[in-house]
Each structure stands twice: as C-alpha cells, then as structure tokens.
Simulated scan of single mutants.
Amino acid sequence: MQRLGQLEEDGADEYEMEFEILTQDNLGIIQFFDDDVLLGTEFVETHVSLQREDLLDDYLDAYEDGFVTIIVPDDAYFETVEHIKNELDEAADIYSYSALGIRPTPMAS
C-alpha cells in the first residue's frame, strides 16, 4: 500500500505500525503504537468503504484511543469533510489522496 511506504519513508519508523486491509469494505487501517500503547489510527478510505454504515462509529471508537486521520479519494474530500466534521467536531484530520501524494489504484473485480 502506497501510504504505508510513505510513512516508512518519512521516518515513522520510530513508531510501530500495524496495517490491515478489510477486503469486504476495501478499507485500509494503519495503527500507530509506541511501546505497545496505541497512539492513533489512520483510515485509508475508498469510495466503497465510505459507504459503510458504521463509518462514524469506527472513527469515534478509534478516537477514544488516540488520534484519527482519514484519507479519502479526491472527489469525495469535500463531502466527507462536511459530513464528518459536523459529526466529529474536529476530532479527526481529513486529507485527500492527492494532498498526500497517493495515486488511486483500481480495485480488482
């Protein structure tokens, strides 16, 4: 996954990272740890994963344990910011793929 490679390149190696792809939702989750303490969670969303019903609950649950970063496709950025910022009251940082230099990749059928 591009984002994981970016984080490793940018020196995030001072933290332990665990990465998981939830194929059913086509969602990438990266968790950051320091000495087994969860610091935060990064959600790498797709158009498919942004449609899941428990999206806000996932973010709120993760926020209880640390920071939350949400990365979304470029064309979903403004709608996501409007929806999520209203619900989470600044609890999450939201970025578009292009803001972080991520190239979208086609999903396998």
Rank of each mutant, 00 (worst) to 15 (best):
M1P: 14
M1R: 12
R3E: 12
R3K: 10
L4G: 03
L4M: 11
L4N: 08
G5N: 06
L7W: 06
E8S: 09
E9I: 13
D10V: 03
G11K: 08
A12Y: 13
A12C: 04
A12S: 03
E16S: 13
E16F: 12
E18P: 03
E20R: 13
E20A: 14
L22A: 02
T23R: 12
T23H: 10
T23D: 14
T23Y: 12
Q24H: 05
Q24Y: 02
Q24L: 06
N26K: 11
N26I: 02
L27R: 04
I30M: 14
F33S: 05
D34W: 09
D34Q: 13
D35P: 00
V37D: 06
L38N: 04
L39I: 07
T41E: 01
T41A: 03
E42F: 03
E42Y: 06
E42V: 07
E45N: 05
E45G: 00
T46M: 01
T46H: 00
T46Q: 03
V48E: 13
L50T: 01
Q51A: 14
R52M: 15
R52C: 15
D54H: 04
L55T: 03
L56Q: 09
D57A: 14
D58E: 09
D58H: 11
D58W: 02
L60N: 06
D61C: 00
A62V: 04
Y63L: 09
Y63M: 11
E64C: 10
E64Y: 08
E64N: 08
D65C: 09
D65H: 13
D65N: 12
D65S: 12
T69D: 13
I70A: 11
I70T: 11
I71T: 10
P73R: 00
D74H: 11
D74I: 04
D75C: 12
A76G: 00
A76D: 05
A76H: 02
Y77W: 06
Y77A: 02
Y77H: 09
F78P: 00
F78K: 10
E79G: 07
T80G: 04
T80Y: 05
T80I: 02
V81N: 05
E82R: 01
H83V: 01
I84A: 08
K85G: 02
K85H: 13
N86W: 03
L88N: 01
L88V: 01
D89Y: 15
E90Y: 14
A91E: 09
A92R: 10
A92V: 15
D93I: 00
I94S: 01
I94N: 03
I94R: 07
Y95W: 14
Y95M: 05
Y95P: 06
S96F: 04
S96I: 02
S96V: 01
Y97F: 15
Y97A: 10
S98M: 06
S98T: 13
S98C: 10
S98D: 15
A99C: 02
L100C: 07
R103V: 13
R103F: 07
P104S: 08
T105M: 07
T105D: 07
T105P: 00
P106Y: 07
P106G: 09
P106T: 09
P106S: 11
P106H: 10
A108G: 10
S109T: 04
